[in-house]
Amino acid sequence: MFPLVTGTPFDHAGVVFGRLHGLLLSRLGALPTRLRPPSPGTTELRHRLEQLVHDGPALRVSALSLELGLLAVTATDPCVRDRVDAAQDAVHLVLDDLRRVGEALYPPVLTGAGIEPALRSVAERQGITLDLDLSAPDLEPGARARTCLLIADHLRTLAEGAAVAVRVRAGKRYVRVGISEAGSGRRHWAVVRCA
């Protein structure tokens, strides 16, 4: 017996099209998505802003903290001392905020230590397990910074406890980056042009 087909040929074509559409969407979802690195200008600006935060507000507020520490030595009234302690705590919170801003702008150890310590630092703060496969010897500073910022910015979008594998391969003209997120299975890729 042949299966009984109900409805018009148009209905049947609609079902087939719907299934194909769903299949295509699921396949597209599994395809790696492209990430865009920050431009050289943006990278330079972010570096300068981090230095400004470090050498300006962060240093001034740290000096203010010392001033409060000095005030606590001379204050004999317990009420005044309590208020100085409370002000110290508030100052520490401000510095924690400034640290977060600075770290997000430009990883502090990137200039002195390179991509790997900078990315490990970001992963550590985010509570992410990072499997880093990095082969980028003699990468010029500009491409190194843009590659690091591209990956660091993506790591910051991941939830705490996530596990991610990052592969970086540098050639003469391009740096190729691959990112795979365990669990969700999402994959990303990027190409950074060297100067």
């Binding site: 470090h54 962060a58 240093l59 507020v61 740290s62 903290s65 010392l66 409060l68 520490g69 110290q88 100052v91 520490h92 510095l95 400034l98 640290r99 600075g102 770290e103 502090p108 150890v109 230590a113 310590p117 490990r120 630092s121 550590e124």
Partner: peptide, 28 residues
């Protein structure tokens, strides 16, 4: 100003005695 594992590892490479690494405001 920053608490960095990389800095800590460098400090440990310099020595594990008579040495310290602290945030600036925490010694205030």
């Amino acid at each position: 100003h920053y608490a960095e594992t990389h800095y800590l590892m460098r400090v440990l490479e310099i020595g594990t005695e008579r040495i310290g690494y602290r945030l600036k405001e925490r010694v205030a």
